[in-house]
Structures are given as C-alpha cells and as structure tokens.
Amino acid sequence: MKNMVLLVIDTQKGITDARLFAFEKIRDNIRTLIEKARESGVEVVFVQHDDGEGSGFSVGDKDFEIFEEFRPNDGEKVFVKKVNSALHKSVGLSDYLSGKGVKKIVAVGLQTNFCIDATIHTGFDLGFEMLVPAYANSTFDSEYMSAETAYRYYNEFLWNGRFAKCIPMDDAVRLLEERRK
C-alpha cells in the first residue's frame, strides 16, 4: 500500500545546525526515518523554502541546499516553496500527493513553529492524516520563547489529537517498516 509518504521539510544547510533544539537527536531521528522509508519503499519527498533572490536563502545559494546528511536520492521528488506551508496550493505538492492516493503524511523537518506548523494545519484541512514523530522537528530560540518551549508547545499540546497524531519515534519506525511487508 503506497498511501503514505515521508515529507522532509526545509532541512536546508542554512538552518540545519547546532542552534536547533536537540539538534543531534533531531538529526539522527530524521536520518533514521529517511533510511527506514527508503528501505520499506515509502516515498520520501523533500521541500525547500526559497526566501527570494538576494536573501541568501534562495535557489542557487549554498544555505538553500538540503543538509548533506539528508540529501535526496536520484529520482526523489523535491518541491520548492515560497510560502510557509509545504501543502499550500502554490507548491503543487498537495495535488501531487492527492493524485497518488496518499492519505498519510509523516512530517519531519524545520522549523516547528513556522513551516512545520503551517504544513500540519494545511494537511489537516486538506484531509490528510498528519503523523509527527517525536524529536523529528525543531526550531531556534526566539525573543518570545525558547526553542525547547516551542517544540514542546506544538508537539505536546497544540497538534496532538487536534491536527495530527504525535507519535513516539519507535512507532514511526515500526509504521515505516510495516510498509515493507
């Protein structure tokens, strides 16, 4: 059954680093999920955020490129967006997934309180079952809250049971491995 994808959002060189909350754990978990998805035949789809020409975070800029440890394999889809939600109509991803009959999206990446949040809300509104593995998204400290507080607020309070199912990492791995059977 190919009704599920692993969606890797905005894991770009300019923001995938030790400034993130729980960086090493997040990095290891995302890498594991990508490997398990590939081993199990679950499609891995990548999204990159383009802040516009001259921003330093646009097509052709070093910081725009996908973090080397998560690099897409040949043939894996990569979508570029200029809005927060990876599933906004302008990106084309929602139409692509709907056309393939995808029902479940395992969403990972950056940043928790921006593009991940927007994508989870949009996915919910579009009728996708949004699954969020623990410690597979992150963000930075801001003047309003610490990165850890932001992570916990969205993952442990706002999304779970409302807009998504926030699941333990072991459950996410098991879900991907079951697709192999």
Rank of each mutant, 00 (worst) to 15 (best):
31 R>M: 06
51 D>A: 14
51 D>G: 05
36 K>Y: 04
40 S>D: 14
22 A>L: 11
38 R>P: 14
43 E>T: 12
42 V>A: 07
31 R>T: 15
46 F>Q: 02
50 D>K: 01
46 F>P: 04
21 F>E: 03
42 V>Y: 04
40 S>F: 05
45 V>R: 00
45 V>G: 01
32 T>H: 02
32 T>F: 01
29 N>I: 10
37 A>G: 15
41 G>A: 07
25 K>G: 12
38 R>G: 07
25 K>L: 09
36 K>G: 07
44 V>I: 09
34 I>Y: 01
23 F>S: 12
34 I>V: 11
45 V>N: 00
41 G>P: 15
51 D>Q: 10
41 G>I: 10
38 R>M: 08
25 K>S: 14
40 S>C: 09
38 R>H: 11
29 N>K: 04
43 E>F: 06
27 R>E: 13
38 R>A: 06
26 I>T: 12
36 K>R: 02
34 I>S: 06
32 T>R: 03
47 V>C: 00
38 R>L: 08
41 G>Y: 08
39 E>Y: 02
28 D>V: 09
24 E>F: 03
52 G>A: 09
34 I>K: 07
45 V>H: 00
48 Q>C: 11
51 D>C: 02
51 D>N: 13
51 D>H: 11
52 G>Q: 10
39 E>A: 10
37 A>H: 05
33 L>R: 01
41 G>C: 11
27 R>Y: 04
49 H>V: 11
23 F>P: 04
53 E>D: 13
34 I>A: 06
48 Q>M: 10
33 L>A: 07
21 F>W: 15
46 F>S: 02
30 I>N: 03
30 I>V: 14
21 F>A: 11
37 A>D: 13
27 R>D: 11
22 A>Y: 15
30 I>D: 07
46 F>I: 01
23 F>C: 06
25 K>V: 12
37 A>M: 06
39 E>G: 08
32 T>G: 07
38 R>W: 02
31 R>H: 04
48 Q>A: 12
26 I>F: 13
22 A>H: 07
53 E>P: 02
36 K>P: 13
24 E>N: 13
45 V>I: 15
21 F>S: 05
31 R>K: 14
49 H>Q: 15
37 A>R: 01
27 R>H: 04
51 D>L: 06
36 K>N: 13
24 E>A: 09
53 E>C: 03
46 F>A: 01
42 V>R: 07
33 L>Y: 01
42 V>H: 08
47 V>N: 00
43 E>Y: 04
45 V>L: 01
23 F>W: 15
42 V>P: 08
46 F>D: 00
48 Q>E: 14
28 D>E: 06
23 F>I: 08
43 E>R: 12
49 H>Y: 06
53 E>Q: 14
21 F>M: 03
24 E>W: 06
36 K>I: 11
44 V>D: 09
48 Q>I: 11
26 I>R: 09
35 E>F: 05
52 G>S: 10
37 A>L: 07
40 S>A: 09
24 E>P: 13
35 E>Y: 03
47 V>A: 00
47 V>K: 00
45 V>T: 07
27 R>G: 08
51 D>P: 02
46 F>E: 00
51 D>F: 05
41 G>H: 08
37 A>T: 12
46 F>K: 01
44 V>F: 02
